[in-house]
Structures are given as C-alpha cells and as structure tokens.
Computed example of a mutant assay.
Amino acid sequence: MSQTGLDVVGVGNAIVDVLAKADDAFLSAHDITRGGMMLIDEAQAKEIYAAMGAAIEISGGSAANTTACVASFGGAAGFVGKVADDTLGEIFRHDLRALGVEFETAPLDKGPATGRCLVNVTPDAQRSMSTFLGAAGHVSVADIDPEQIGRSAITFFEGYLFEGEVPRKAFYKAAEIARSAGRRTALTLSDAGCVERQFAAFNDFIDQHIDILLANDVEAAALFGSDDLDVIAEKAREKCALTAVTLSEKGSLLIPRDGEVVRIDAVNPPQLEDTTGAGDAYAAGLLFGLARGLDLAQAGALGSLAASEIISHFGARPSVSLKDMAGNAGLI
C-alpha cells in the first residue's frame, strides 16, 4: 500500500468486551446460548453482568478486533463503528487508536449507551456471548467516508452489524464506493444465527458486492445448506471469488472460484485459554496477506498464526506482536 493507503478498513460493531469464566450451570441459569451470540437489552445486560464472576474489560467487536490484529501485523487499518459520547465510548476510541487503527467515526450524541458484549468462557475455552448493541447498531450511511473506503485495499464487513436496517444501508454504500474505486470487499458471516435470520438479505448482499467471504464450518453450512465440505466448496465457487472456511483445530479451507482448494493447517497454541476472537484474528491474517499480495497459502498461514496467538490467552486482542511472530515463522 502507499504511505496514505490502508490495507483493511473494517465496518462493524464498536463493542466493549466483558470477559469472565463461567460454567454450563451459569449459562443455563441465564438462558445464554452456549457457543453462540444472542442479543440482549440493557436491563438483561445489567442482570447478567451483576451475576458474572471476576471480569476483564477490553475494547472489542469482531471487525474492530480484526483491524487491531492487522495493525499488529504492521499493516495500516481503519475502522468504522459507532460508540456513544460516554466513558466506555472514549475508552473504546482510545484503545483502538492507541494500536494505530484509524478511527474517526463521530460518536452518537443522543440515544443508547456504548455497546458491550458479555462473554462467558467455559472450561473448554468455548465462549458464549450476550450482546447489548447500544450505540453500535447506529452506524449509518453518514458514517461512511468515501475517501477512507477508496484508499483501502479491502473493506471488511461484520455480519453481526448487517442485521440492522440502517447499518445495512451503510454496508451497501461502502461496498458501492469500494467497487467504484476498484477495491475488494470481504464479509464475515459472524454467526449461524445471523445467516438464518437474514438468509435472503445476506445472499443478495454477497451476490452483488462481496469478493471474499469468511465463515466457520457451521456458518458455511447454514448459508450453503449442507455440512458436506465438497458441497460447500462447489457452491462457494458460484458465490464468491474467494471463500475461506475455518475448521477449528482442523485448520481452514481457501476456496477460489478458479483453482484448487488450498488447505491451511491450524497452528497449535502453547495452551488453549479462550476462543474469543479466533475468527477475527484469522480474518486479519488472511486479509492482510491478500492486501499485501501474498498467495493464498501464505495469507492463510498468517490467519492460522494469528488465531493461535489469540486463543492462547484471555481476550480477543494480541498480547504480542503478530509481525514479530510472523517474521520468526518466516511468513513475512
């Protein structure tokens, strides 16, 4: 990229993650969907938070996590997301900018508070998320800066945010700008529930505007109507120029429209602590690699490396330099 260009700009939910350890009994007691993400209102957020164990608070949100990881790789990243003009919003803004991510979206001056995601992590490292979107769901067309989108190699959309009618219009606007500028677009499906609830709208957006699709195997099965990886690959080729399907400890598949499927091995972490943000980190490595012109195998390897770092500790942001890790591994 040029000195003023961006490798990736993410459009997504600006969320503060609140992470705590929990057991299955806690999930059942609060009707929390195990391993998934459910939306809650502010009253529910207060109730669950009050019952959670000792927690840590970290600025998060799926696409924001991805841009933070891109910056850790030494890339140039930007973020579009909405926080309120409150304490949590200022914390979120400071945290992201401190990592070197370009974040200029104006805060919401009237309306709900900054969003937060209550992440309960069970002993098997599975994360179950209860999300109060708050201000995060108020991203609008007015928040899309054509200049920022136009100088980003890849504009990356977060499926969670697609569920809102107003943010969805912002997605279409940003995608149109990217296409007009000759840039690429990417979308993460985020959650199988998102796919099921917005099935027709997701397909329409992907068919019209997405070059790179990212999903785990469950999300891909929901979109393509099959859990057979050969069927998924066949249908993915008809859908996008490139589809990435992550398979947890089995690695991932990169499915180009033309050419053979590229199998990427997982990188085993020194210990498995928390899977929160693994997909976000994988997306960062993959998209950073593609933005820098690496081939699919190299870009996918960066994704696996980033995911392994994230799941080795609590929280969804890197605890060490991904650039250094990739350099030591001979990947960049």
Rank of each mutant, 00 (worst) to 15 (best):
A68G: 14
L88I: 08
C194G: 03
V261C: 08
A106V: 15
S152K: 04
D95L: 06
F162V: 02
R263V: 15
I210G: 02
L253W: 11
A45V: 04
P318D: 01
N216M: 02
F171T: 01
S321Y: 07
A178P: 02
F132E: 09
A22H: 12
H313E: 05
E158C: 05
N120Q: 15
I154V: 13
T66R: 01
Q208D: 00
Q126N: 06
S62N: 04
N328K: 14
I40F: 11
D85S: 12
A84W: 07
L302Q: 02
A299C: 03
N328A: 15
Y49S: 15
E176H: 05
K169Q: 09
F156G: 12
T122C: 01
M1A: 15
V320R: 05
Q44I: 08
S312N: 09
Q3D: 15
T131P: 07
D41L: 10
I310K: 01
K323R: 12
L6Y: 04
I311C: 04
I212H: 01
F162Y: 00
A71L: 11
H30Q: 10
D228E: 08
F103S: 09
A51T: 07
A220Y: 03
K323I: 12
L27V: 11
A54K: 11
G293L: 11
G74Q: 08
A178Y: 06
S304P: 03
S190E: 02
N216H: 03
T4C: 11
G100A: 12
R97I: 14
R127D: 10
C117Q: 08
V83M: 06
T243S: 10
L247K: 10
K169L: 12
I40S: 10
A54N: 15
P270V: 14
D265V: 15
I177D: 05
A68H: 14
A113L: 15
L99K: 15
S62E: 08
D109Q: 14
A266P: 00
D191L: 08
A50F: 04
A25W: 09
Y160S: 09
G137T: 04
F205W: 02
I310V: 06
V119S: 07
P167T: 00
M37V: 13
L296F: 05
A283I: 09
Y160W: 00
C194P: 01
E238V: 09
F92H: 13
G36M: 06
Q298M: 12
L223K: 00
I91E: 14
E260S: 14
F205N: 01
D227F: 10
R197M: 02
L214G: 11
I144F: 02
S180I: 13
K46P: 12
A174F: 09
K169M: 07
D95G: 09
D145H: 07
I332N: 13
S128C: 07
L19S: 04
L189I: 01
S319I: 11
Q198P: 03
T185D: 00
I232S: 02
L19K: 06
T114K: 03
A215M: 06
N13Y: 09
C240Y: 07
N65D: 07
A55Q: 12
S252W: 04
D124Y: 03
A221P: 05
D280S: 11
E176G: 15
D295L: 02
S130L: 13
R317S: 05
E249L: 13
A278L: 08
D265Y: 12
A291F: 08
